[in-house]
Amino acid sequence: MSIEVNNISKSYGSQKALNEVSFSIQKGEIVGFLGPNGAGKSTLMKILTTYIASDEGAASVNGFDVNAQTKAVQQSIGYLPEHNPLYLDLYVREYLAFNADVYKVAKSRIEEVIQLTGLSNESHKKIGQLSKGYRQRVGLANALLHNPDVLILDEPTTGLDPNQLVEIRNVIKNVGKDKTVFLSTHIMQEVEAICDRVIIIDKGKIVADKKLDNLISTEKEQVIEVEFDYKIEEQLIAKIENLTTYKNTENNIWELTFNAETDMRPVVFDFANANSLKTLQLNQKNKNLETVFREITK
């Protein structure tokens, strides 16, 4: 396993930031780590990167224990923290050369990460002259400098405009082809665009851990939006078979949730005919990650 977390707990005074968190990530996975503010995301990432220690439990990265083998862990990960720490007075190449000396890697690697992260046209500038998007690229280039097996990225696209978002997303997806990537974010589209799997944490506990496709489309639940030609009573709607919830969203439009493996639109259509109703629209609505996230953490 690239990352192994077993019953990790961490408290700050009386506040429990992490409560017996466990999961594992295999080599080559790109995993999105989601949760509301204060859920414990950054705390866990700091434990995995050896910046802080847990109170209880154990964790390893690339087989190295985060408490007992801190240097080996640091050498095998690339970390981009939420607040990307950069020396703004240094030139891009100068900054990367400084870190190449720290990591004891060949200077030729600097050119490789500059190309990989799309920094070529900006590499002659001071970091303080760069936009937020290019500063994030510098942080990502630095995280990749020693060619780590595991990337841990905490809010890598915070504050970026839509164009920068797409660019950084593509960089992460590209480097994730041969590395394990564990990233936290509040941007659901980002997860849907690049992640294979999603782990959701809430109030310090893991509340979901599934492949992205499985999380978004549960096996039996389906949502159908139907508009009738005139207003009907709630008691009548409630009689439709396999209906779990229903909501009158607007005028004569209803959102119906079913627990059934088969398509329930014919059932709704037959219900309308049986009650002398006309269906003006009848659509199956697919849940997106944002909807699922809100349901799980509300």
Rank of each mutant, 00 (worst) to 15 (best):
L256T: 04
Q189T: 07
D213E: 09
I216A: 12
I200C: 04
F258H: 03
E250K: 10
A208T: 00
N214D: 07
Q189S: 08
T257Q: 11
L165D: 13
R169M: 01
I253H: 06
F258Q: 02
N174Y: 05
P162L: 12
M188F: 02
E192L: 05
Q164Y: 01
V223Y: 14
L215M: 06
L256A: 15
Q164T: 08
G204P: 00
G204L: 02
Q189C: 06
I232P: 01
K247T: 07
E219W: 06
D209H: 04
E219C: 08
L243K: 08
M264E: 13
V207T: 04
R265D: 05
N174A: 04
P266S: 06
A238F: 15
I172Y: 02
T245C: 10
N259R: 02
W254Y: 09
E221K: 11
N248I: 00
L256Q: 07
E241N: 15
M188C: 01
D263N: 11
L183C: 12
D202S: 14
Y230N: 10
E192R: 07
V175M: 03
K220M: 07
I240N: 13
D213K: 15
N163Q: 06
Q235P: 00
E167A: 12
T245W: 10
A260P: 00
N174Q: 04
L215F: 09
I232H: 02
M264K: 14
E221N: 09
G176L: 03
I206A: 11
E225V: 15
K210F: 12
I224R: 09
L165M: 12
I187W: 03
C195K: 09
H186Y: 10
E227Y: 07
H186R: 02
C195L: 06
T180D: 03
I206P: 10
I237W: 13
N174W: 03
E225C: 14
I201Y: 03
I172D: 01
W254H: 08
N242H: 15
E233D: 13
N214Q: 11
